[in-house]
């Protein structure tokens, strides 16, 4: 029973339309957009921000905001990397993911404790822990770019298939890490839609007091949420360094802002309560295309940030305009009804 009116109020169709227009434009100008290697390249660059965006979206839906996930990912992967190197580990990469996820869990739990149990403001807490984790990484572990253990290096060379562009002679490999993204997306979808925990995240974002009165364990849900984000960040960290085949501690720092922007662009309401995985992935896709493919139509990479900035401003501006318009329309229809 989904009516057309309800669809047009969502922002996913607009983002999708923007993606299609942009791809067609690039295709028309360069003829290269829909080539196999470009699409594989895009998918490749999408993996890490998309993994981050899933947790980020869930936090924003719950009415919070998290800027610490890149710091958690960096510290977790760096420590894991060092542990495995020091112990000359040569086994399966799963252990690397497990250690990193575990470290992420611990770091996320600190966020969860401060936010869920002490009820401290989310932005400030995650700013603080972000600074703490980055500092620990560079201070206590004096982190700098480092090799990765063989398990991770091997994992990084696992490719699903290779796409070749016959005209340009370029090839691109689809990394196996995309399977992790797909798994995370399925898991997150099931969690958000079919568990009380997932509905609880939306309920808290809608009205925290009402959620408490209804019998949701608000503290527990927040604790879970930030732990989940931590685990996800830990996994993302390993995925990233395995694709790069070296561990650069600063490679993910600063991504929080673009990920948040992508999530909001995908229709997640900044004040909480609304947001979808589809929209989030579309938002990330749009940002990825902007930063990856503009070069195909001759716009130098130096200028890509101007475009991402403009898209954030226009995208959020349209959303803001829409909310005001619907609010006005609603007020008027209520008046008419009365």
């Amino acid at each position: 029973m989904i009516s057309l009116g309800r669809i047009s109020k969502r922002s996913e169709p607009y983002v999708l339309a923007a993606i299609i227009l942009l791809s067609l434009l690039i295709q028309a100008r360069s003829g290269q957009f829909f080539s196999g290697n470009n699409l594989v390249d895009l998918a490749r660059s999408l993996i890490v921000p998309a993994l981050f965006s899933v947790g980020c979206m869930m936090v924003i839906v719950s009415g919070g905001i998290d800027v610490s996930f890149p710091a958690i990912a960096s510290l977790a992967m760096y420590v894991t990397d060092k542990i495995l190197l020091a112990s000359n580990y040569s086994g399966n990469v799963i252990l690397a993911y497990a250690i990193s996820a575990g470290l992420g869990l611990l770091m996320g739990a600190l966020n969860g404790f401060l936010i869920g149990f002490l009820r401290l403001p989310t932005l400030v807490v995650t700013l603080g822990t972000s600074s703490l984790y980055t500092g620990l990484m560079f201070g206590a572990f004096s982190a700098s770019a480092s090799d990765v253990p063989p398990a991770i290096a091997r994992h990084g060379k696992e490719i699903l298939f290779t796409a070749t562009n016959p005209t340009m002679g370029l090839t691109s490999n689809m990394p196996s890490q995309i399977l992790i993204l797909i798994a995370v997306l399925i898991l997150a979808f099931l969690l958000l839609r079919y568990t009380m925990l997932g509905r609880g995240i939306y309920a808290i974002g809608g009205d925290e007091t009402a959620a408490e009165r209804a019998g949701f364990n608000v503290r527990g849900i927040k604790m879970f949420l930030y732990c989940f984000v931590g685990v996800l960040a830990g996994i993302t960290g390993i995925a990233r360094i395995s694709m790069m085949t070296y561990a650069d501690p600063s490679t993910m720092l600063g991504m929080e802002m673009t990920v948040i922007a992508a999530v909001v662009l995908g229709g997640t309401r900044v004040t909480g309560g609304m947001g979808s995985l589809t929209g989030t992935i579309l938002g990330v896709a749009l940002m990825t295309i902007l930063s990856n493919s503009l070069i195909l139509i001759g716009i130098p990479t130096y200028w890509t940030r101007v475009f991402t900035g403009a898209v954030i401003i226009i995208g959020t501006g349209v959303t803001a305009h829409q909310t005001i318009a619907t609010r006005r329309r609603r007020a008027q229809s209520q008046k008419a009804a009365a």
């Binding site: 905001i65 922007a261 900035g309 401003i313 959020t316």
Partner: peptide, 30 residues
């Protein structure tokens, strides 16, 4: 952007940060 177009400040300035840095990179090639 914030006062006339009612964009939440955190997003508007996230956008301007990208925009201004982008222009700065663009005109200097980084």
């Amino acid at each position: 952007l914030i006062s006339r177009f009612n964009i939440p400040a955190i997003l508007a300035t996230l956008g301007t940060q990208q925009l201004f840095t982008g222009i700065a990179i663009g005109i200097t090639n980084g």
